[in-house]
Design a protein around this nucleic acid. Structure first.
Length: 454
RNA sequence: GGCGGCGUAGCCAAGUGGUUAAGGCAGGGGUCUGCAAAACCCCUAUGCAGCGGUUCAAAUCCGCUCGCCGCCUCCA
């Protein structure tokens, strides 16, 4: 299996540290607002990667953090006049609701920054001892970027080349590239005690502390959006490698391409985001997932309603194939070649567009076999197996009450009565009535079937 | 200024040196059907932003031009 590593800039053969276990960390959300489509893109991409690794027999330990304390949370909590802890809890439950609705598998562990304070303090202490960090006059602690010669290796830059942007200098940094490990508390802000005074962790340090705490001093895979490459992941490397003295901190860095909305990127600061809830009102979770995996995870993806609807139609076709009965006992449709193509595609840096192409070819093979009276059972099972690796549910739209089912079936019978009597006009009226209820009718050789269309 | 990405059919999107340029959607024509729906079959890029170059051979490598975008400040 080959995986593209941002660090080396090329695809590498994947060999985990432990033969059977994969240690995987994916940067989570800062919980001050609801999740948007960009989060769906990133977390569905990594969900597929995780599912595929598991399918290939690896025992994946998947850690995803919550940043549950930072400036944005404090500001939002002040704006709304609600305690920051309540704000955080609210958005954590929203996060889980969204992820579950998208059929994203839960991580093994969801550590929170505020629950990792002892480990964070431990890491900072060691960094100070090793002279990679210093305490400033106000009780904040900064990482000394120039103490780490490898700084910039992930994004292929050197500290010397970096543009020095003049930020507001209330901060007491020795060098403008330095970043905060520990932020001294300002009056009224939440804080935790530390050897350097009351304060809270900086943004980057939590990922170092949590990943080392829960996965160990070196990881197999660390993922996130491309926006996190610099400075977040660059800083994580600096902290972690200085703390452990081991290289590399992460074997393979993976970054997903960014979502774009028309010409603009979708971002919280631009206020042009589509929330996951809004997306799910319009399209099914399966269609959203197909839309996302139809493009390669490292490429930018343009949000497109037209493409989402196209995905909806594609999902319908997959569902239809899963219903094909064929003729058990007939000539068997052999699905092995499709599985082989699927695996070859996924082994090549999770090339989901090609993997999905193999799935659609299998769909056609099943339908063709169905028409020709062949035994499609094996092929159908294979389709079920492989679509589950991508994370499709292929479930019917929603449960229907028994009462409604009775009503629908009554109408279907009524229509079939008219059909038998060759009362086409009346039969069509009933069909239209059902259509308005969101029910589609299909007359097959085995009788009339129906399904929900919304 | 530095680092990086993209431009393939009406739309989405793989392919990154060599058989007929995947797949999905949409469209056209058939088969089936009372008509539909679903499904199946056939068709839909002599061409991959443009111009040069390297090569026996390029969408794929190199150069230039045009257009679009990301990061360097919080962001998946």
């Amino acid at each position: 299996m080959k995986i593209f590593n941002t660090l080396s800039g090329r695809k590498e053969e994947f060999v985990p540290l432990d033969k059977n276990g994969v240690k995987m960390y994916v940067c989570g959300v800062t919980v001050y607002d609801v999740c948007h489509f960009g989060h769906a893109l990133s977390y569905i991409s990594f969900d597929v990667i995780r599912r595929y690794l598991e399918y290939r027999g690896y025992n994946v330990k998947y850690v995803q953090n919550f940043t549950d304390i930072d400036d944005k949370i404090i500001n939002r909590s002040n704006e709304r006049g609600i305690p920051w802890r309540d704000l955080v809890e609210k958005y954590i439950s929203e996060f889980f609701a969204d992820m579950d609705a998208l059929n994203i598998k839960r991580a093994t562990i969801y550590p929170r920054a505020t629950e990792e304070i002892p480990m964070i303090i431990e890491v900072i202490k060691v960094l100070i001892e090793k002279k990679h960090a210093y305490v400033s006059t106000d009780g904040s602690v900064y990482f000394s970027v120039r103490s780490f010669p490898d700084y910039g290796k992930l994004t292929h830059q050197t500290a010397a080349e970096m543009r020095v942007t003049e930020t507001l200098q209330a901060e007491k940094k020795e060098d403008s590239l330095d970043f905060a490990l520990w932020k001294a508390a300002k009056p009224g802000e939440p804080f935790w005690p530390s050897p350097w005074g009351e304060g809270r962790p900086g943004w980057h340090i939590e990922c170092t502390a949590m990943s080392i705490h829960h996965l160990g001093r070196q990881l197999d895979i660390h993922g996130g959006g491309q926006d996190l490459m610099f400075p977040h992941h660059e800083n994580e490397i600096a902290q972690s490698e200085c703390y452990t003295g081991l290289q590399p901190f992460v074997r393979i860095w993976m970054h997903n391409g960014f979502l774009q909305l028309g010409a603009d990127k979708m971002s919280k600061s631009l206020g042009n985001l589509v929330t996951i809830k809004q997306a799910l009102e319009r399209n099914s979770a399966d269609a959203i997932r197909l839309f996302i995996v139809s493009s390669y995870y490292r490429m930018p993806l343009r949000y497109s309603l037209e493409a989402l609807d196209a995905a909806e139609a594609g999902i319908e076709r997959m569902k239809q194939a899963l219903k094909a009965e064929g003729k058990p006992g007939g000539t068997v449709v052999e699905p092995e070649q499709f599985k082989t193509r699927f695996i070859e595609a996924m082994d090549d840096d999770f090339n989901t567009p090609q993997a999905v192409a193999a799935l659609f070819d299998l769909v056609r093979e099943i339908n063709r076999g169905n028409e020709r009276g062949m035994d499609v059972g094996k092929a159908r099972d294979m389709l079920k197996e492989l679509t589950a690796v991508i994370g499709f549910t292929l479930q019917e739209k929603k449960a229907v009450s028994g009462e409604l089912v009775a009503k629908i079936e009554e109408l279907v019978e009524k229509r079939n009565g008219y059909r038998k009597a060759r009362e086409w006009k009346l039969a069509d009226e009933v069909r239209n009535q059902l259509k308005e209820m969101g029910i589609a009718i299909e007359d097959t050789p085995r009788g009339t079937t129906w399904k929900l269309t919304r």
